[in-house]
């Protein structure tokens, strides 16, 4: 391709997209309004409630998920450390966006994974898309998202979801495909229809694998908070970004450690929750 026609090609694609986003940007933004409202409401709730109450609620969730007193005490110290070093508000912003992201990735990812497991054609079509989502540098797909929706929470949320959703989709697909064929045949032999098979046999037996996917998804979402902060997502990513541009080592380190603490808590809680379900499956909880 000559450099002249290459330039023309780029220009015309950009132009077309620009006019598309000028025309439909507002409408598309409106679609995401409910998510935005919820995100803002959730973030405000975490910010405005008294911090001891929030810590208590978070510790309650940690204990319910993990049933481990050690992890709960460890989390308490982590949250106190975060508050003592003045990172509470940023941390709550990050928790809120990760929470909403996780809910959305589960809400979209599991149905897509189910679809994929049910048809080899769907799998053949979706797998390359997932590969692109995981390997394409996130800055590249941030460009059209920002052009379309501007800077703010929603584009950040989209960027995080695009990057973090593949594991939950892949592992839902894998988990369902791994369900023992003989057990499935037994369900068939008793006249179970597709939905009964899915909800009574396939999903329950795939749950531990699906949970590994959810765990991966949360970890990847946390890894994206710094990049998301470049397009205006509030949270622990912003001070890290500031620290990078100004060479504030301590500020970077402290906020980085806060991200690590969150990651470890999320990881341990979701892992031990997943493991508990597996134990139940093995019947070893007697």
């Amino acid at each position: 391709m000559s450099s002249e026609s290459l330039r023309l090609f780029k220009k015309s694609v950009d132009g077309a997209y620009r006019s598309f986003s000028a025309k439909y940007g507002d409408a598309i933004e409106a679609v995401f309004d409910p998510v935005l409202y919820f995100l803002v409401w959730f973030e405000k709730l975490l910010h405005n409630s008294p911090w001891p109450l929030v810590i208590l609620a978070l510790l309650g969730l940690v204990y319910l998920g993990s049933r481990s007193i050690y992890l709960t005490i460890g989390s308490l110290f982590a949250f106190l450390f975060i508050g003592y070093f003045g990172m509470w508000d940023d941390t709550m912003s990050t928790v809120s966006i990760i929470g909403v992201c996780t809910a959305l990735t589960i809400g979209f990812g599991i149905p897509v994974g189910i679809l994929m497991s049910g048809s080899d054609r769907a799998r053949a079509m979706i797998t390359p898309i997932l590969d692109i989502m995981q390997t394409m540098p996130s800055f590249v797909y941030l460009i059209p998202v920002v052009m379309l929706l501007g800077i703010g929470k929603i584009p950040g949320l989209l960027a995080v979801i695009i990057y973090a959703i593949p594991p939950v989709i892949r592992l839902t697909d894998l988990g369902i495909r791994e369900v023992n064929k003989e057990v499935l045949e037994a369900a068939d032999a008793f006249g179970a229809n597709r939905m009964q098979k899915l909800f009574r046999v396939q999903l329950p037996l795939a749950l531990p694998t699906i949970f590994a996917g959810i765990n991966q998804t949360i970890m990847m979402a946390l890894a994206m908070v710094v990049i998301a902060s470049m397009i205006g997502v509030k949270g622990l990513g912003q001070p890290v970004l500031k620290a990078i541009t100004n060479q504030y080592f301590t500020m970077g380190l402290l906020n980085g450690l806060a991200i690590v603490a969150l990651a470890i808590i999320f990881d341990r809680v979701s892992q031990s929750y997943g493991k508990r379900m597996q134990q139940h499956r093995a019947g070893a909880n007697e």
Binding site: V183, A186, A189, F190, G191, P204
Partner: peptide
Amino acid sequence: RRNKTGMVFQRFALFPH
């Protein structure tokens, strides 16, 4: 299948969960 036939399998095929 729901009413007329019951099936027993070689490797049991019970629902582990």
